[in-house]
Design a protein around this nucleic acid. Structure first.
Lengths: 205, 205
DNA sequence: CGCACAATCCCCTAAAAACAGGATTTTTAT
DNA sequence: ATAAAAATCCTGTTTTTAGGGGATTGTGCG
């Protein structure tokens, strides 16, 4: 039985590219595409693909969140994350949220077919490059931030002082100071400059 | 006479996507693709396309530099920049280096055809979104930094205080402070956090 | 030559952040 | 339920940065 494929990406070229790369595969049935999270969910009310290629950067919602939503409503659907970026943070996040694979947008036909076959066997597929990136970066941990810490970090990066942040969040400035201290400790940064640089490098701001 | 198209991009999906989107256009002749700057230049020794779609992010060389090189050796070839990113800095740079157009990788078939037709008439084509981005960001230029300012900026981003930087560079800490003030002024940032965020966004650190 | 600009140095004040200790309450997860 | 984690608040001191003024030297360029 042919594997039914659906793709969610807001780039026409990627949709056409994948379609073109897979169109001569007999074991693969092309079900179509969606260009937003909303239209993807609408499609899934009526159809059940086996595998979804899911772009991480969608216009209306993060691909990461959409992945979680799809897996909770339709656990049998296998998801392959799709991105131009071989960033370990993305790869980790989408795998944590239920995806079974990750391929880059420079994948070859062979890689795509390999990815589909691998995850249909119930295994996890990571493109060579993605696996390499994860390996390289393991050990360089990204601190886990709380909701409030993320908020404070964002506002610091926007140039706000503790007092401004306190007013904005309706809390005391000493509380903001505590969150700031915790941020510095978690990032092992000794001042704001290092904090913002590291947060920026990890794509947290 | 059909317009001869060539594409330079290291993403198979994009190549296949554009090929697929343009394959039924009678006025367009597909000449093939290259996946690196080097193989693009090799191709151009033997063939003369009318239009090249040129990705800005290539593995061996910046698309910006390649654009300059192509235009200097083959001025008649028209170039359309191609990128996933609607960043004003990229758009500006490739246009400055001789490209006649810029489209995003989420372009539709209509946009691609429109772009080709427009630049074959000798005009410049910018995708709606690219034009919007340029308009939005015009005025928010990237500051030009002096040698010393770049050094100081780097050291600030590494978490060093004015005193530490002064010791490292064998200058007075008041001098470092002056450089710091000038950096803040040039970036129109009111504190270090904003400075580092902006520098990071412009890839200066 | 004169001008702009970069790089260097200085003073002063105020604001903000970093550091060092606390403490209490609320939420969340087992 | 209860322990852990998160969020809240406090009082201090010291260091660093921000903002406002200057000034001098050398270099490159028209």
């Amino acid at each position: 039985m042919a594997t039914r494929i659906f793709i969610v990406d807001d780039h026409y070229m990627i949709i056409e590219g994948i379609k073109s790369l897979l169109q001569n595969e007999h074991e693969i049935e092309w079900m179509g595409h969606a260009m937003s999270a909303a239209s993807c969910m609408a499609f899934l009310q009526l159809h059940r693909p086996d595998v979804i290629f899911l772009d991480i950067n969608l216009p209306d919602q993060s691909g990461i969140d959409l992945c979680k939503e799809i897996k909770s409503q339709f656990p049998k659907i296998q998801i392959i994350g799709l991105s131009s970026f071989n960033q370990q943070s993305y790869i980790n996040k989408i795998i944590e949220n239920g995806a079974s694979g990750y391929v880059l947008k420079n994948a070859t036909r062979e890689e795509l077919v390999d990815a589909i076959e691998t995850i249909m066997e119930g295994k996890t597929y990571l493109s060579d490059e993605a696996a390499r990136i994860i390996k390289k970066n393991e050990g360089s941990k990204i601190p886990i931030l709380t909701r409030r810490e993320k908020e404070v970090l964002m506002l610091i990066s926007e140039g706000m002082t503790n007092n401004k942040i306190a007013t904005k969040l309706f809390i005391s400035s000493t509380t903001v100071d505590t969150h700031r201290k915790n941020l510095l400790a978690k990032f092992e940064a000794k001042n704001t400059a290092t904090l913002i640089r590291m947060a920026s490098q990890h794509d947290l701001i």
